[in-house]
Design a protein around this nucleic acid. Structure first.
Lengths: 114, 114
DNA sequence: TTTTTCGCTTACCTTTTGGTAACTGCTATA
DNA sequence: TATAGCAGTTACCAAAAGGTAAGCGAAAAA
């Protein structure tokens, strides 16, 4: 008989994988933070996130919209105005952002201080 | 004068960015979950994570070790045995993993059910 | 009239990430 | 003796993510 084995943990990994599929990457959470902070127009968001380019921003906004985390609204003024807002569903990500933010703060202290 | 402006939020983004730099990517959290679940040897970890390859696992383990999230210990038995364990510091990531897991579970429900 | 702003898109390129398969020296098991 | 397991490494390649720079038509500001 083979000795080869391991502890099963796919059920613990599955939900984490699901979450990562949607919010991982360099930009998505930063974009949500920017919009939550009051930026709603394309150029505003772009200017608020250091180093992001319009190409990447456009693509990430599409992804976020597809996952119902933001909404894109067109106002037919002259000229037309486009605004991005976060959805109520995106607000359920708050604990994730908070946990990452807390850990990041602590990590920076650990790396720099002491 | 230019009207171009935006709401500043770099201070909110910085810690999240720091955290993402270290734990983002497809595999790192899954590896931590696997080791936390009781897997400690290379092949065990490999078998416990669907689709991971030994090449990728070896690289990710190195990254995690560099960031002091896991420890690699060599036991000089014959044959030599190598074990990976999570550090106390890695345990500070628990709230992050929990938040992601909770959100992932809920998201799956949202997508599938209703 | 010229410049700037808006919300993007396009073409091209580099970097990062991941996948395949074979292979290593050693030991243990059948 | 042949095979399988251990902990990886190596060479090669494909895909995904990201960066660079330019440009579009319309309108507003200088």
């Amino acid at each position: 008989m083979s000795k080869a084995s391991h502890t099963e943990c796919t059920s613990e990994m599955l939900p984490v994988r699901d979450a990562l599929d949607i919010i991982s990457g360099k930009w998505k959470l930063l974009i949500l933070i920017s919009i939550s902070s009051g930026n709603s127009r394309f150029r505003e968001i772009e200017r608020s996130i250091p180093k992001i380019t319009s190409k990447v921003l456009a693509k990430e906004l599409k992804d976020l919209e597809e996952n119902e985390l933001i909404e894109r609204t067109v106002y037919d003024d002259i000229p037309v105005v486009i605004k991005y807002t976060i959805t109520p569903y995106a607000k359920t990500l708050q604990p994730v952002i908070q946990a990452l933010s807390d850990w990041g703060k602590n990590h920076r202290k650990k790396i720099l201080g002491r």
